[in-house]
Each structure stands twice: as structure tokens, then as C-alpha cells.
Design a binder for these strands. Structure first.
Lengths: 344, 344
DNA sequence: GCTTGAAGCTGAATCGATTTAGCTTTTTCT
DNA sequence: AGAAAAAGCTAAATCGATTCAGCTTCAAGC
């Protein structure tokens, strides 16, 4: 393997190497040697060179060339971080595609894809700044460094941000304060005296506010600060460990607010292992961000933004932006929906 | 809105409309009017025209132009159908990105994305045939029409097919026959006399074979054909309904094989609602295709291809293909892994 | 009056691949 | 032998956007 990487091999490179013109090479690459009457020997030499030199076509060039000037083609991206779950993202994707399909016609085509960035390193994504990848983008699961990056630049195309509040961007937001408050109300109404919040160390803006509002509401009603159980990660296993430690230490808990459903799932296990009943001994409230919250045992009572409404808002706004229906950045708040199920 | 779609607006169009050169327009689009000393009045006129004409940049052209000849750039796609769940796909994506990151350097960049096609209409995806979108692709969740399309063409780049057997392609496959057999063994070893298969109406090749092998194994051991409970869809709710009907009709069941974990989840609910215990009254075996099978209550015993192995195989092969490490189509079989947990 | 400088813009080249028209050279046919 | 046809290849244009060097024109300075 060469130490310094050389320039990529182009059709031209191959042509020079073999001693023919780029046209000949292109002919072989497209497998049109028969109709264009290239000598079998030449074809073989070109094939060999393509293999030897390790030719990789440049997709941008191909696309440009293949461009049909009669059709508008636009590229929509859904950008999310690796670390985040895909539940909401996949719903967004499906909705985007539905709207794209409805708008697809003889003169109009869409490509929709999910692309991922490493949380906190959104800025490193190639093609973001110069609009050389997307005509429109839905951005979600950003961390503070990503937000800082976004605040510092103006992306030159349609952008809708989901779940984060950013000046100069169209944002669709839940109302974490209200969510936390409603969650507290549910547990308090059940008569919980020792509610507990289950939240990961690394909080997003939204989850932090949820937890905060929950605590405020509990304090206002009971005069006591609820206990905070801090989870090392985002997985159910992490949550189970954390709650097990809390319960094992004999610290009180008769109600639980988990800031994501994944954590609630882990909590279920810890609670049951400790011999406690849900909701009798410990009532649990989740968020509704898990596909199967309805099939938890018992089904999880949730207070959270309706993912249906969120998805619809986000996608509608993206298409409006792309069609210049509105240009000013707008903040849209999606009120929480409450789904009472068996767990509280 | 115009009836027939006109040709897309290009930089050139705008230039002519305003009466300036394309260079001037491009300058404004890049917001470089200050350093390039464009008159504010001209800038405003161009801006106006950009808005009025509804200019949408051509991403392919931008990318080509922005191309840095010192870096190899390759585009990897993970293609899946809309209808399928994203659990395995997202694992594949993460693994691809991991390998891509490891290979990313000053002279080498990767873009990884998920793109979706409508099940059965893979052929309609733009850019598939002419390699103008991807340098390498992982294909999964195809239906027979998609397979037919693939069999009829040779895609001119690296392709790995996951979960389907296709001549002339690199395929990574589970071994559904063995999976079904092992599932049967587990239930029989627990002493089940009335095992039941839970499977959806629309079966993929793999799930059909799993169910078939399960039945064969049970028949061979007991002499009786196991009952088949047919589920209308793919969701837990569908499965719960189907199993509830079966149990409600008083038909026997002391062991259950669900061909996907989503179905198992629904089955759990039906079983518990019927007042039966898992695994005491009814033992359940699933597949292990659910992220949280470990947190089902009780944790789900699974027989299925280890998604870890599958993902690794698929991704390794893709990179090998892209580096021309091997060119012949290969079939790789991933043996099932058995994870005994609480449910059987 | 002549130089210098800035302001305001354009022309042409470029990115990589593809295609069409067309140019040689060789072969075939009469 | 001479004309026509076939074989085998190439030059140049093209896709859309960007950039750099450079060309005018006008104002200011000595």
C-alpha cells in the first residue's frame, strides 16, 4: 500500500495508461464495446488497467452527466447522530417519502436518505456547508457542539431542526416543561410520596428540562425534592443497574419518571427483580418514544410529544421551506399527549 | 403553478434573466459579493431573481466542482424497503460507519447513508443502474420482484445482499432450516406436547423456511403436525389478536415459536391476558431480531442468526468487494446462535 | 495630463464521465 | 484497380456551478 495517497484514478488516467482515448475507456466501462466496435484486445487491455489501477467512478460526475434537464431532482436528507435511536427518525423518513411520492411526477424526482453524524461533530460532515449534498435537510439529535456549529453558520438550503431550539432555524419542539409537569401530576395524583426521576448523565436540552420541570412540580406540591437516579448510559441495562442500586440501598421509591422509554424498560426489570409491583408498589411514567411502549408489561403510561404530530409538522415545514412558502425561521411547539396505560 | 414542468432554473438562467454573467450569480449564491466587489444593487437584483425563479442548486454539479482531486471519495448506501423494520439496518449502518471511519484519512473519505425503496419496486430507484449514486451497496429486505430485477441486471459496483439468495451476487444468509429445527428442539426438550408456530400471512423466504423446518422437526419427533397460528400483519398487536383467538377457542398450546420477535412480544400479552404463565404454561422461543429481547418479561429465549456476525460479514464483504479483494460472488451462511433466557 | 487605484464586472478553464459525429485505416466486392 | 463498406478509434461538446485572472471605466492624486 502506498504511503501517501495518490490522486484518484480517473477515466483519463486509465486512458493514458493503456494508450487510448477516454472515450474508449468509457465505452468499456459502460459495456458498449460491441455496438461501438472496440477491438476485443483493446477491451481486455482496458479492463485489465481498470482492475490494476483500482478505478472507482466519481458518482458526482456521473450524476451530472446523466442529468436529464427536463426533470427537477432534489435531494432530501435526514441527519441524525449515531448514538440516537432510530424510532422517530424512521417515522420521519417514511413521512418524508410519502410526501415526496405525492409530489413525484414526470418532471420531478426526489431522493430521500438518512445520513448520520457523530454526536457533537456535525460540522465534520462533508458537503453540509456548501450545499453539495442536500437541497433540504431535517436535523435531529444534535448535541450542544453541533448547535454551536449551526448557530455560527447559515446553511444555504432548507433546514428544519427537530427537538432543539436554534435561532435562525425552523424548529419543531416539544414542550419539555409541560411534559415534566404533567408527569409529576400523574404520579402525585396516584398518591406517590417518594417520586424518583431516572435520567442519563448526558442529558439533551429536552430531557434535562423534562427532569427539571418534574422536580419543580413535585417540590411545589410536596415540599420535597424528588430523588434523582443517574444512569450511566442510554440503554435499558444501564437504567436497570442504576435503579437496582437505588432500590438495593433501601432508598424510597413509590413512583418513577423515566425521561426515555428505553430507561423505563430497564427500570421495569429492576423493579420486578426487587419484588415490587407496577403500578401498585411503584408507578411508572415514560415518554412514548418507544415503538412498543404499548406492549411493555404492564403497558407504559406516557407523557410526551405525539410523534405523529411532530413528524407531520417537521415534514410539512421542510416542504414549505423548499417551496419558499415561508422563509422566516419559525418555532413550532407540539403540546404533549398523555396516554394512560397500565403503569401509572 | 405551470402545467407542464419547465426546465430547471440554472445559474445561467438567472444570469440571463438579470442581464449579468453566471459568475456574478454564483458570487451572490456563495455570499462572496463583498470580497468580489459586486454592486449592492446588482446583488439585490440577483437575489430577487433567485427567489422569483425558484432556483434550486444541482447538487451533483456542486459536488463535482467542489471535488478535491487529492481525496478519494466513496459513497456507500444501505438499501432497504420502507416496510421493513430498521433494527438490523441500523446495526449495519453503524458497523459500516465504524469501518469507514477506520479507513478515513487525509486522502480518503466515505459517505454512508440509508436509502429506502418501496418493497417490490427496487428497479424504480433512480441511479441504481448507472452507478450514479453509490460506489457500494448493501441490499436487504427485498421481495421477489426485486430479486427478479436484480437477477436480470448486473449492477456495476460492489453489492452485498443480506438475507436473500441471489445468483451472481455476494449474499450473506442465515440458515432458516437449522434455526427452525433448533427452535423445535428447545421446545421439545422442555417437554412441550402441543407446540404452535406464530407466523404472518406474508412470509419472506427466510421466515417461511424457518416455520417449515420447525414443523418438520416437531413432526419427526412427535408424529403430530404443530398448529399454525396465522397473523394478519407484522405488528405485536396483530400477533396478540391472532393468539388470543387461538387460545380463546380452547385450542391447545404449551409452547410457542414466533418467527419474529415483534410477534413474540404480542404473544406475551395474549398469553398473560389468558392467565397463562411463561414459560411454565407456555414456553416461548423467538428469533433475536429485537433490540430489547433481553428486556421482555420474561427475557426472550432466541434462536436466530447472530446479528453481530451477520453485520460483520456483510460489511467486511462490502469493503473487500470495493477493494477488489475478491470478485467472485460468494454465499456466506451464518449459523444460528442460541440464547437461552427465561422464556423457554 | 498622466499615473494609480478601486470598483464592478466577465471570459474561460475546471471538476470527471459520457456521447456523437466523424476521421483513418483496412477489408471486401466487383 | 477502384469504390464501398466495415472496423477501430478519437476530438470535442456537454452536464451545472465555481473561480481566477483580467478587462473596462471612473475617480482621485500629483
Amino acid at each position: 500500500m502506498a504511503r501517501g495517497d495518490q490522486r484518484p484514478v480517473t477515466v483519463h488516467t486509465i486512458a493514458k495508461h493503456v494508450g487510448v482515448s477516454p472515450s474508449a475507456v468509457s465505452t468499456v466501462l459502460a459495456n458498449r464495446q460491441k455496438e461501438r466496435r472496440l477491438a476485443p484486445a483493446t477491451v481486455e487491455k482496458i479492463r485489465q488497467a481498470v482492475r490494476d489501477l483500482g478505478y472507482v467512478p466519481n458518482v458526482a460526475a456521473r450524476r451530472l452527466r446523466a442529468n436529464d434537464p427536463e426533470v427537477h431532482h432534489r435531494e432530501i436528507g435526514i441527519l441524525t447522530s449515531f448514538e440516537a435511536p432510530l424510532f422517530l427518525v424512521s417515522r420521519v423518513l417514511r413521512q418524508v417519502q410519502r410526501m415526496a411520492d405525492a409530489r413525484t411526477g414526470p418532471g420531478r424526482r426526489f431522493s430521500v436518505s438518512i445520513a448520520m453524524f457523530h454526536a457533537g461533530r456535525l460540522g465534520e460532515m462533508p458537503g453540509l456547508l456548501d450545499a453539495s449534498r442536500f437541497n433540504g435537510v431535517i436535523l435531529t439529535n444534535t448535541l450542544p457542539p453541533d448547535d454551536a456549529f449551526l448557530a455560527a453558520t447559515t446553511l444555504p438550503y432548507a433546514v428544519v431542526v427537530l427537538g432543539r431550539r436554534l435561532p435562525n432555524y425552523c424548529c419543531v419542539l416539544d414542550t419539555p416543561g409541560e411534559i415534566g409537569r404533567r408527569a409529576a401530576e400523574i404520579l402525585l395524583a396516584r398518591g406517590c410520596r417518594q417520586p424518583v426521576v431516572l435520567a442519563p448523565t448526558l442529558l439533551t436540552e429536552s430531557t434535562a428540562e423534562r427532569a427539571g420541570a418534574f422536580c419543580t412540580a413535585v417540590r411545589a406540591a410536596t415540599g420535597n425534592e424528588p430523588a434523582r437516579v443517574v444512569v450511566a448510559g442510554f440503554t435499558p441495562a444501564n437504567a436497570a443497574d442504576a435503579l437496582r442500586a437505588h432500590l438495593g440501598a433501601g432508598r424510597g421509591c413509590d413512583g418513577l419518571y423515566a425521561v426515555t422509554d428505553g430507561l423505563a424498560l430497564g427500570a421495569y426489570q429492576a423493579i420486578k427483580d426487587a419484588g415490587r409491583r407496577i403500578p401498585k408498589d411503584i408507578a411508572v411514567v415514560g415518554v412514548g418514544d418507544h415503538e412498543h411502549a404499548d406492549f411493555f408489561d404492564p403497558p407504559l403510561t406516557c407523557v410526551g410529544p405525539s410523534s405523529e404530530t411532530i413528524v407531520e409538522q417537521v415534514v410539512t415545514q421542510l416542504f414549505d421551506l423548499m417551496n419558499r412558502r415561508h422563509v422566516k425561521p419559525v418555532e413550532t411547539f407540539v403540546p404533549p399527549s398523555v396516554v394512560m396505560r397500565g403503569s401509572a
